[in-house]
Simulated assay, not measured.
Amino acid sequence: MTWPFVLTCIAVVVSPGPSLAVIVNQALRAGRTTGLATIAGNTSGLVFWAAASALGLTALVRTSEVAFVALKVAGALYLCWLGVQTLLRSRRHQEQPPEDLAAGERPRGLWSAYRAGLLANLSNPKAAALYLALLPQFLPPDGSVLSGTAVLTVVQMAISAGWYVLVVLAVGAVRRVLSRPTVRARLDQISGLILVGMGVRMATLTRATL
Results as ranks from 00 to 15, higher is better:
L36R: 13
N42D: 11
L46Q: 11
L57D: 10
T43R: 09
Q96L: 13
V61M: 14
R106A: 13
L57W: 14
P97F: 01
I39C: 05
L79R: 02
L82G: 01
A50E: 09
D100V: 11
L46T: 07
H93N: 08
V22Q: 03
E65M: 07
L55C: 11
R89E: 07
H93S: 04
L82V: 02
Q96D: 08
L46F: 10
G104H: 06
A70P: 00
V73L: 15
R29L: 13
D100Y: 04
A54I: 06
G56F: 06
L36T: 09
C80D: 00
A30R: 15
V66K: 07
A74M: 00
I39S: 11
V47E: 03
A102F: 00
N25W: 08
T63E: 13
R92Q: 15
G31Y: 14
S53G: 05
A40Y: 09
A50L: 07
G75V: 02
S90G: 15
S64G: 08
S44L: 15
R32Q: 11
L79V: 02
R108W: 06
L57F: 12
V84H: 00
L77H: 02
L46G: 08
T33F: 07
A27I: 03
A27N: 04
R62F: 09
G56S: 10
L79H: 03
G45H: 05
A30D: 12
G31M: 02
Q96Y: 04
R89L: 07
R91S: 01
P107T: 13
R106P: 01
V47M: 11
N42S: 15
V73R: 02
E99D: 15
T38C: 14
G104S: 14
Q94V: 05
G45T: 09
T34M: 13
Q94W: 10
N42Y: 08
C80P: 03
V22E: 05
L28A: 09
Q26F: 05
T38N: 05
W81Y: 15
S64F: 06
H93I: 02
Q85P: 06
G45P: 02
V47K: 08
G56L: 06
L79M: 02
P97W: 01
W49F: 15
L55D: 05
L88S: 07
L82Q: 03
P98F: 01
D100M: 07
L101Q: 06
N42G: 11
V69T: 12
A51W: 12
Y78N: 01
G35N: 13
E99S: 03
I39V: 11
Q96R: 13
E65Q: 12
L46W: 12
G75S: 04
L82D: 05
L82P: 00
L71G: 14
A51R: 11
E95F: 06
Q85E: 13
Y78Q: 00
A103D: 01
T34Y: 08
L55M: 15
V61Y: 14
I39G: 08
G109R: 13
Y78E: 00
L88N: 09
R89I: 01
N25K: 05
A74F: 02
I23G: 02
E95W: 06
P98M: 09
L87K: 04
E65Y: 08
L87I: 11
T43D: 03
Q26W: 06
Q85N: 14
L60P: 09
T58D: 11
R32H: 15
S44F: 10
A67W: 11
